[in-house]
Amino acid sequence: MTMDASPSIQQLVDQLKLSPHPEGGFYRRIFAAPYLVSTPYGERPSATLIYYLLPRGGFSQWHRLRNDEIWLHLGGDCIHIYTIAPDGALSTQTIGSGLSRDAHAPGMTWLAAEPEPGSAGYTLVSCIVSPGFDFADFELGDADELTPLYPKHFDLILRLSRSGSQGG
C-alpha cells in the first residue's frame, strides 16, 4: 500500500485557517495594507492579499470585482483563469506550470477559474487586489444574465456557474 504525500483538502483548510468563499473554494485574508486610498465607493486598503484554495472538481464561479486582481500560483495543480471583458472578448490564462506563475484580471471583467486535473488534487493561489478587496466591490455572476450578454461563451458560462436556472 502506498501513501499519498499530498496534504488533504481538510488539512490545508485547517493549516491555513481557511473559510468557505462565496464564489467557491476556501480563502483567508492574510494582508491588508495599512494605507487607505479613496475610491468612488469608499476608502479601501491600497492592496489586499488572500490565500485561495480550490479542490479538484471545484471552481471559482463567475464573478467580477471593481478593481484589478493578480493571481499567484503557490502550489498544487495548474489552474485555468478565464476572463470575459465588457466587449465579450474571452481570455484564458493557465498558471502553475513552468514559468507561468501569475495572471492578471482587470477590474470589471467577469472572472472564473478551475483547477486542471492533476496529482495534487488541489490548487493553492494568492490573490492580490488593488485597491484592496471589499465585498461591496464584488458581484457574483448569474448564468441567466451572463449567457444572453455573451452567447459565444454559453457552455463555459454554464459550466462555471452555480446560480440562475441554467447554472450547474
Rank of each mutant, 00 (worst) to 15 (best):
L54N: 06
L54Q: 06
P55R: 09
P55Y: 00
R56P: 09
R56Y: 05
R56H: 13
R56M: 11
G57I: 06
G58H: 13
G58F: 07
Q61A: 07
Q61K: 08
H63S: 04
H63W: 01
R64F: 07
R64I: 00
L65S: 07
L65R: 00
L65N: 08
R66H: 15
R66T: 12
L72Q: 12
L74V: 03
G76W: 02
D77C: 05
C78M: 13
C78H: 08
I79Q: 10
H80G: 08
H80D: 14
I81W: 05
I81N: 14
Y82D: 00
Y82I: 02
T83H: 03
T83E: 01
I84F: 08
I84V: 14
A85M: 02
D87G: 02
D87L: 02
G88R: 03
A89E: 13
A89K: 10
L90C: 10
L90I: 12
Q93H: 14
Q93G: 10
T94A: 09
G98F: 09
L99G: 14
S100C: 13
S100A: 15
R101N: 08
R101D: 02
R101I: 04
R101P: 03
D102A: 13
A103I: 09
A103C: 07
G107L: 08
M108G: 09
M108F: 12
T109Q: 11
W110P: 00
A113D: 04
P117F: 02
G118L: 06
G118R: 03
S119L: 14
A120K: 02
G121R: 00
Y122I: 00
Y122K: 00
Y122P: 00
L124N: 01
V125C: 11
V125M: 09
C127K: 01
C127W: 03
V129R: 04
P131L: 14
P131C: 14
P131W: 09
P131I: 12
G132I: 03
F133G: 10
D134A: 15
D134N: 15
F135C: 04
A136L: 14
D137G: 13
F138E: 12
F138P: 09
E139P: 02
L140W: 07
D144S: 11
D144L: 09
E145V: 09
E145N: 13
L146V: 06
T147R: 10
L149I: 11
Y150K: 02
P151E: 01
K152R: 12
H153A: 05
H153P: 09
F154I: 04
D155F: 11
I157T: 06
L158W: 05
L158R: 14
L158H: 08
